[in-house]
Design a protein around this nucleic acid. Sequence first.
DNA 1: GGCTTAAGGTATGACAGAGAACCATTGATT
DNA 2: AATCAATGGTTCTCTGTCATACCTTAAGCC
Lengths: 266, 266
Amino acid sequence: MVTRGRTDGTRPVAADGVPDAVGEDATGGEGSAAPVSVLRPVRAGNGFEETLEQVLQLLRLGLVPPGDRLPAERELAQHLGVSRVTLREVLKVLQDQGMVESRRGRYGGTFVLPRAAAADGSDELRRRVAAVDVEDTLRFREVLETGAAGLCADGLADGGAARLRAALEATQGARLEDYRRRDTLLHLTLAELSGSRSLAAQYASVRATLNELLDCIPLLVRNLEHSQQQHAAVVEAVLDRDAEAAREMMREHCAGTAALLRGFLA
Amino acid sequence: MVTRGRTDGTRPVAADGVPDAVGEDATGGEGSAAPVSVLRPVRAGNGFEETLEQVLQLLRLGLVPPGDRLPAERELAQHLGVSRVTLREVLKVLQDQGMVESRRGRYGGTFVLPRAAAADGSDELRRRVAAVDVEDTLRFREVLETGAAGLCADGLADGGAARLRAALEATQGARLEDYRRRDTLLHLTLAELSGSRSLAAQYASVRATLNELLDCIPLLVRNLEHSQQQHAAVVEAVLDRDAEAAREMMREHCAGTAALLRGFLA
DNA sequence: GGCTTAAGGTATGACAGAGAACCATTGATT
DNA sequence: AATCAATGGTTCTCTGTCATACCTTAAGCC
């Protein structure tokens, strides 16, 4: 795993026992234990895996709904900063999994298949879910969501209010099978309107993970109705510029999902 | 088959960075305009640049204070998931910049030099600061900090309280030149104790950027004293398990820094 | 029908980077 | 003084990835 412990006990600078990352000395003494713990592997796997991650995110967020076409390979590859060859390897896998379908010729492309077909058989996807740190995901999500709601309430950019209302309405008219997608888009909109690109990007990432978890548990209509009310309340608070209320409502909303997931996955 | 090798299978934290631009196709409606906008380039530059970023983060966060030794090249390279050759190219640059110094032999290593020597001459570093999205940084920081404070107040792991107190005390006894570092460590501790690895990782990243910005403006003793009081209040609220108060104090604390930076950089 | 065009499918040469082995240096230990 | 061990310094090879060019398919347009 990550916190590498060093097999032979020789260590030049103290640090016995538990190497907590930021464990610190007092007065300027040396002896930071394991400063490296904040380091993120520059390459979290190889190009293939990272690309797969990104494309899956696109699908899981519902940004490209079933039936729709992904951007052309050349374009997508450029966006991802990856060669077309590498991207094609990823698409090949997704095709084998029955998640997408490629059609040649003009007006062809790579199309997203409805989720049913995916059949979940894949080891790849199962291992993926198993590897998720649920607690991390839920906590981080709550932080980002409440933060985004607060920032939005502090001031929306031009057109923000309209986009928010539109996204909210879209969820209200959604059929059950489309609800998850609309819900995701509403939250993504909020994150985007927060005015912090970093926040939006992180939310997209964590939300993709969250959706993966949510796919593992049943969708209850009652929770859904409750969610709807909370969505409306959050949006209302944001439009009223009541940051405190927006945060509080959002926190409650997230807590609901979190409780549900903890219950089912624990 | 596409089972690419790679020995370690680590994926501890998410990545950061979110550039994106590129005009969009937008061929006739369809509803979803630019789904690709959430895509993060898989490789934000080459291995060298990303590695440089990470090592700089280590230095800017003060996790390895001046005079101390970085982890051995072999170890550091492994942590970063990068080859030793690549890491060495990075260290070479830092050495040329006068930021670190390498000594051979047993008990040798790569040592961090005091900041004065760095002299800021480098174009590399200047371009870096110029490229920062200040507003993004400040907002994202506030979100993460308040979130971390709230989560900590909701419940600390064993030993968390002690670590927090220790980190707080360390800042109080700090001399001016060491204050920034202790301050950073206190906040990092809080982030780490939040129980979300993702949050901690993101905070580390954003804090490194923030420190870079703070290095551009004068350090005022008055602000410093004020900060001290706020630190104490936040820690107190956390230990009292008063999440709301912790969040509110932290928000205020962040707002102070933000106002300062906006004032000087605007 | 034949041409045009936009998409996926295929092949190849160049390069960056990983991995491993080896060399050189230095302080501590014997 | 000799040895050891941990570190930086160097070099080699091999593999993944990129960039590019070209082929194939299929829908629209003349």
